[in-house]
């Protein structure tokens, strides 16, 4: 049996002001799994995803990522945790003052890779998402689908073991959404653990062998979790 690569044990998250976004969450993701995290808006999907790279910290409970406890992780340790994760954000977080290439190379610069190695891996990542011919373009000149693919290229360039995406197909039409999901599937097939938050019913119906459903901050069906 595969080892859990992500593990939530009795995790709760309460925001300042008293709103409880997550309540007593228990679930695990095994290495190499493809998991969809579903639920309505406000169910707590984004909060749960943000707990994994320690963008938000849990109010109680234990989170383990790659065997490392996030709950006890110091501020200095967080950057090293994030380097092993590929993050695709709902609001993309692209930098529009630089080219497609320069957006994707950013994680390589952070980890201090050599210029030759960085260039090689950036081009490989852009090739995987079909944007190699647009490497000199500014992201503002890309379509919504291309921008999302650019985010994915930036997320995979450091060869993460876990890929986390928050609503990666939101605001995309069906054709683009299918292409993006196909990309995540192909990464999963080469061993990358994929965790995607979505509320897209079609996507849920067609894509994943495993769905974790959240409702009002709780995992709805423990059997599937």
């Amino acid at each position: 049996m595969a080892q859990p690569i992500i593990s939530f044990n009795n995790v709760s998250k309460r925001y300042p002001g008293g709103r409880e976004a997550l309540s007593n969450i228990n679930f695990t993701v095994e290495a190499g799994e493809f998991v969809l995290l579903t639920g309505h808006s406000g169910a707590g999907k984004s909060t749960l995803l943000k707990l994994i790279p320690a963008i938000e910290r849990a109010s109680s409970g234990t989170i383990l990522v790659n065997g490392q406890s996030i709950s006890t992780l110091s501020g200095r340790g967080i950057p090293y945790l994030r380097r092993n994760l590929g993050l695709v954000f709902q609001d993309q977080k692209l930098l529009f003052d630089r080219s497609v290439f320069d957006n994707v190379i950013l994680p390589m610069l952070v980890t201090g890779q050599s210029h030759a190695e960085s260039t090689r891996r950036v081009r490989a990542a852009l090739d995987k998402v079909g944007l190699l011919d647009r490497e000199r373009a500014n992201p503002v000149a890309l379509s919504g689908g291309e921008q999302q693919r650019l985010c994915i290229a930036r997320a995979i360039v450091n060869r993460p073991t876990i890929l986390i995406a928050d609503e990666p197909t939101a605001s995309l039409d069906d054709e683009y959404a299918d292409a993006i999901m196909e990309m995540f599937r192909s990464f999963n097939q080469v061993g990358v653990t994929v965790l995607i938050a979505t509320h897209d019913r079609d996507l849920i119906a067609h894509s994943s062998p495993r769905v974790v459903h959240l409702q009002r901050g709780r995992v709805l069906d423990k059997a599937t979790a």
Binding site: P79, L87, K93, D97, L106, P107, V110
Partner: peptide
């Protein structure tokens, strides 16, 4: 600000 935020998200240390 945006660049700093993105850099921190992808694993940049404070020193970086």
């Amino acid at each position: 600000r945006e660049e700093i935020e993105v850099s921190k998200l992808i694993g940049a240390t404070d020193a970086y």
